[in-house]
Computed example of a mutant assay.
Amino acid sequence: EVNEADLAAHLDRYYTAQTHTGRALSYQPGQFTRLPNRYYRFQQGGIEFFALDSNTFNKPPPLPETEAGRALRQTLREKRRQLVQDKQARLDQLAVATVDLSESTDEMEDDYAKIEQIDEQLRDIDMQLSAHREDITVDLEQMDWLRQSLLRSWQNDAVRGRVLFFHHPPYVTEATKWSQGQTLAVRQNLQNVLDTVQQTLGDRTAGRSLVDLVICGHAHCFEHIETFDTGHADSHTHWLVCGGSGFSLRRQRPEGSELVDNVDGQPQTVAKSHCFIGRSGHGSEKRRPYSALRVDVTAGSVPEFKVTPLVAERKKKRWKTYAADTLLLKTSSEARL
């Protein structure tokens, strides 16, 4: 933390880069690696990166005061009751296992992971049940910053591609995240910004997506999702979820790899998961593939992204590391035909 007396000297020392908006932080690998707070952008190799703080636009809207809204509220309350019971049963089971060591370490880890998963689901349900119109705050300043930054980016001929990255994925098929209130809130708020940008740019994008790639975390898996026609300016976009490197890997939802939403009042497939790396199997065949990610960008005026998941997998109490098949993400309008 820089105190006020030293602030001017700090700015003169580190904010030495010049942009059209004024001075910018000069990131120096190995020397000065602090990042701006909350949201920022930078450019490398003709690719412009936009970092967002999705914690400021992820609150679900209040449930509607309609018959459908009341039914949903009742469903959420019942689901919450069942989750609380499930959590208590697992806590009781763990207490017994800790005393007599009757469970294997893997089984105990699974119980701890499931409890963590339940806590996460309970938090999301509580956010939905307690939401009130006056409490819903969206960081409008950040949203306007993103809108203006994307417009400037598309007016800059030196920029050949655009990548967004933030925490909460708007599209995901991980079993506990795909329908969460936070997921849908982030999706809607991002769509609102992108729709406004698209309306302003008109034909300038020449059929390309406003953003070539979106990278998120939060969901405990690796996933590549592609949107189709969503009825919004986030159509035909590649989305990567890179959240499978820590505790409590999750499974893909049993409903499958396609996500359905209403487009012009009709249910329609709006996105599909092309690759999912997460927990799978049962018993002795259970697999835990933890993952990181490497992204390479091709040359040319319209970049392509080569995505390689790097996996450290635990199975039958043994570890193995490997690189999964590389995914080629094409971003030109012709590539989607």
Rank of each mutant, 00 (worst) to 15 (best):
Asp6Phe: 01
Ala8Val: 04
His10Gln: 07
Gln18Tyr: 01
His20Met: 00
Ser26Tyr: 05
Gly30Asp: 09
Asn37Thr: 08
Asn37Gln: 14
Arg38His: 14
Arg41Ala: 13
Arg41His: 12
Ile47Arg: 02
Glu48Thr: 15
Ala51Asn: 15
Leu52Cys: 07
Asp53Leu: 03
Pro60Leu: 00
Glu65Gly: 08
Ala68Asn: 10
Gly69Val: 05
Leu72Glu: 15
Leu76Tyr: 10
Lys79Pro: 10
Arg80Asn: 09
Leu83Gln: 10
Val84Arg: 10
Lys87Tyr: 03
Ala89Met: 05
Ala89His: 07
Asp92Thr: 10
Leu101Lys: 05
Ser104Pro: 09
Ser104Tyr: 02
Asp106Pro: 03
Glu107Asp: 15
Glu109Tyr: 12
Asp110Met: 07
Lys114Gln: 15
Ile115Tyr: 05
Glu120Trp: 01
Leu122Thr: 11
Leu122Asn: 11
Ile125Phe: 06
Thr137Ile: 03
Val138Gln: 03
Leu140Arg: 11
Leu140Asn: 13
Glu141Tyr: 00
Gln142Gly: 03
Gln142Met: 08
Trp145Thr: 05
Ser149His: 08
Leu150His: 03
Leu150Ile: 05
Leu151Glu: 13
Leu151Lys: 06
Arg152Gly: 12
Ser153Trp: 02
Val159Arg: 04
Val159Asp: 08
Arg160Trp: 03
Gly161Lys: 06
Arg162Phe: 09
Arg162Pro: 13
Leu164Trp: 09
Leu164Asp: 10
Tyr171Phe: 14
Thr173Val: 15
Thr176Glu: 13
Gln180Met: 13
Gly181His: 07
Gln182Cys: 03
Ala185Arg: 04
Ala185Gln: 06
Arg187Asp: 09
Leu194Asp: 12
Thr196Arg: 15
Val197Ile: 02
Val197Asp: 13
Val197Cys: 04
Asp203Arg: 04
Leu213Pro: 14
Ile215Pro: 09
Ile215Leu: 11
Gly217His: 08
Gly217Glu: 12
Asp229Met: 00
Thr230Asp: 10
Ala233Pro: 06
Asp234Met: 11
Thr237Ile: 01
Cys242Ser: 15
Ser245Pro: 09
Arg253Lys: 12
Glu255Ile: 04
Val263Glu: 05
Gln266Ser: 10
Gln268Asn: 10
Thr269Val: 14
Val270Lys: 02
His274Met: 05
Phe276Leu: 09
Ile277Met: 04
Arg279Gly: 10
Gly281Val: 00
His282Asp: 15
Lys286Cys: 11
Lys286Gly: 06
Pro289Ala: 06
Arg294Met: 09
Asp296Tyr: 09
Thr298Glu: 09
Ala299Glu: 14
Pro303Glu: 06
Pro303Arg: 01
Pro303Phe: 02
Val307Cys: 11
Thr308Phe: 06
Leu310Ser: 07
Val311Gln: 10
Arg314Ala: 05
Arg314Glu: 14
Lys317Val: 08
Tyr322Ile: 02
Ala323Cys: 00
Ala324Met: 09
Lys330Glu: 15
Thr331Pro: 11
Ser333Pro: 15
Leu337Ile: 02
